[in-house]
Write a protein that binds this DNA or RNA. Structure first.
Lengths: 140, 140
DNA sequence: CAGCATCCGTGGCGATACTG
DNA sequence: CAGTATCGCCACGGATGCTG
């Protein structure tokens, strides 16, 4: 458990790289990287990016794919992600309207990060459940 | 940039693995993996995990390291992460009280995912800013 | 120092209704 | 179908005060 033995070893000096993210003076325009991070890690942002990594979706299709998202939040999430340059919105001038959403190259990069996290989460569900039971049991 | 050339290429069939996360019937105990994901990607959860990956921290020390976090939210975040088995809380019975927080092996895994995402975000800040200016400019 | 309890405002978010 | 607009709730989260 001592060493992580993983890819980008976050050893000495790695904290430096996140200094802009971690250290931040309140009452200030808010550090840009935090805003981006909050968009990407937002409740629906994560799931939308993960879904779009698989393939492109139409609006309602995406709404059905991501269980529990309201129409409003999906639209809002998509607009935010589009503005940040992660999502490409392709509105075809036909009737009935057809709008396809897909990831930009930048969005693919973001989605891959998020996707790895999501995958990891699903793999570790049991470990977390065990930890919770231990935690809850310890204070009963 | 066309191909991702990164670690776990999320090609065909990768969506299957996230089916439990994406597809979820509302009015139900809420899928476990989503809960975990929301803890990890929560506003302060991300930053706390990233900070603790560098080294262990005492409470106030961590509060100072993570700019903008309130005492309440830090305590709450730490308790959630502890319960999920990500954070180890070491309360030393001394006066004045001293409590050290560090990552468990499971927490290190989580933090590495989150850390990679945070790093990526900082690297792409400029690309996102450019995208936003393009987006905002297009509708003016 | 560590952190729980309480109060309370803001806004995130869902539900509903309406438009192109 | 693909959204916008509006209303209203409640819970996220900050500020303050108290305890061990």
């Amino acid at each position: 458990m001592a060493e992580s033995t993983k890819s980008p070893r976050p050893g000495e000096g790695s904290g430096e790289a996140l200094s802009a993210l971690l250290a931040w003076d309140v009452n200030q325009p808010m550090c840009p990287s935090r805003l981006i991070l909050e968009h990407v890690t937002s409740r629906w942002g994560v799931l939308v990016l993960a879904a779009l990594l698989e393939r492109s979706y139409r609006f309602s299709e995406l709404r059905r794919a991501v269980g529990g998202v309201s129409e409003k939040m999906l639209a809002q999430t998509l607009r935010t992600l589009e503005r940040d340059g992660f999502v490409d919105r392709d509105a075809k001038p036909v009737i009935p309207p057809r709008v396809d959403y897909s990831l930009t190259p930048l969005g693919i990069e973001a989605a891959e990060q998020v996707w790895a996290l999501a995958r990891w989460t699903e793999r570790r569900v049991d470990a977390v459940r065990a930890a919770r039971e231990a935690y809850d049991g310890a204070r009963a």
